[in-house]
Design a binder for these strands. Sequence first.
RNA 1: GGCCCCGUAGCUCAGCGGAUAGAGCAGCAGCCUUCUAAGCUGUUGGUCCCAGGUUCGAUUCCUGGCGGGGUCACCA
Length: 581
Amino acid sequence: MDIFADFAARVAAALKTLYPEASPELIARAVVEPPRDPAHGDLSSNAAMVIAKPLGKNPREIAAALAEHFKSDPDVVSVEVAGPGFLNFRLDEPTWHRVLKSVDVLGEAYGKADLGKGEKINVEYVSANPTGPMHVGHTRGAVFGDALSSLLDYVGYDVTREYYINDAGGQIDVLAQSAFLRYREALGENIEIPKGLYPGHYLKPVGEQLANEFAGQLRWKPEADWMPIVKDRVLVAMLDLIKTDLANLGVKHDLFFSERTLHGQGGDIDLTLDWLRDQNLVYQGRLDRPKGQADDDYEEREQTLFRAKDYGDDTDRALVKSDGSFTYFAADIAYHRNKYKRGFKHMINVLGADHSGYVSRLKAAVKAVSGGEADIDVKIMQLVRLLKNGEPFKMSKRSGDLVLLSDVVEEVGRDATRFMLLYRRNEQSMDFDFALVKEQSRDNPVFYVQYAHARTSSIFRNAASELPALDLSPAALSAAPLELLVSPADIELIKTLAQWPRTVTAAALAHEPHRIAFYLYEMAAAFHSFWAKGKEDKSLRFVNPEDLKLTVARLALVGAVRQVLVNGLTVLGVSAPDELS
RNA sequence: GGCCCCGUAGCUCAGCGGAUAGAGCAGCAGCCUUCUAAGCUGUUGGUCCCAGGUUCGAUUCCUGGCGGGGUCACCA
């Protein structure tokens, strides 16, 4: 149960009864939330203040009327009017016990919601060019997209996790040329990879594979002949590398969508352009020369343009390059039309900071191809600066200057990588310091949270060994005498548990998984704090041989904490170990 | 020059239009015969970059500055 949503509904009902003239929209603006200062009570509502002005009434009078109304609510111990018209509730203990009970009953479902109502949503993330293994720059978006997808799934969306393979551009030809050189190398030639091609050693196995498969057959053929063959082989190989990297990071995708399938005669791009022409959204024209730094090789010419400006973009955008092939954007319009035609009315794209200039044209494209029916949220990942002891950091032996994603995971581990990258708003650029993440682990929130979970496990282990006769089965715990949990420490911990559902809802609505990470930190802190109280005051110990009933109730509480930690860590894709090594 | 992001404690960052702005680290003072001290308790520390505006109420929304980062036909 979500006590905040519950009371929001009660307040709304009260407003409807007391002020029938208030519109539903107005009532919807009233919220129930925890007050900033716990001294003010358990729940707080701004209902009187938001409704006062439009109704031409005094907020404190409205608050007083609401307070009067809630005096008969059996779950409420006291209601007070405070400040400019806040309504502050205090709840009785049985209500908190019901919250706790709902955690134990709902288990992994505690916190789940039905915001999505089963609607389809497409989350596109990573989409790294398939020209080599993933480097660290992709990591943040990968983890973010993965966690956001899990979060949306958790609140009832039908999520498709998608990877757009940019396998159609000129850089793929360059990749194939590079692989071809590795093929010749594998046949015994002495090869130096010229500038402009991909020098990475990861192409060597591709060359060897080609040599095994074709021996010398391709060597003297013209490029036009070997290009398609080599391209196919190298793309598969690169995608395998990427999939391995993603798997090591625990990042999942449902669909790898190939850009190449959009190209070609009668393909999606052709169809989309025809459709756009029918809608009069394409024309031949000239763009103004971009201001700022002078582009030496800028050549003004007439281009095929999409009317992005009509949909809020700063300028219209080119669809066809000077060599006659389609721009990346043309393919992307077709791709997003394809998503729309697959039934997605909600789309999210996770992009790197270098794509911030791309956002408005992407939004324009989605608006255009869906006739305004689909929405898209573009989440930009700001830069991650890699440091070691405060110094900029480079470490890969395998690929020159690039730090590979696999290096990071190897160095600091999957859980720490994921949690640290999620422990920051996506709009915030961040430093990722290996030394801090790895060595000074007490600075690292992931261990703090995982330690809390490990502690819950340890408590259950101890209870089982100290009191072997005690029934700790789920059934026994869900029948625990929760009414014995009356200490302020007990109630405080339950209040933190009570925040989980609203945290999930808020994070999902805002597409902000970092809120989950911060909540988990708070949950862990509340639990560690309770744990320490047991040292001074034996009556606050979880396992208490003197009082078996209380022990069972406390273990139900620990089980609830454990459950919420698991639920949150699962959303983030971080493991919940039973002990830390 | 245009556009995007950031600016909150010494440092790294949370903060949902609400009440006396929070956490971690660092600093200071304490707690290990213990349900794992990878933990806990107390405490010092603020012009929420600046100036206007909207609002009953602005760190939060809007406008204009200042500072930092990113990006800017055609690449992907």
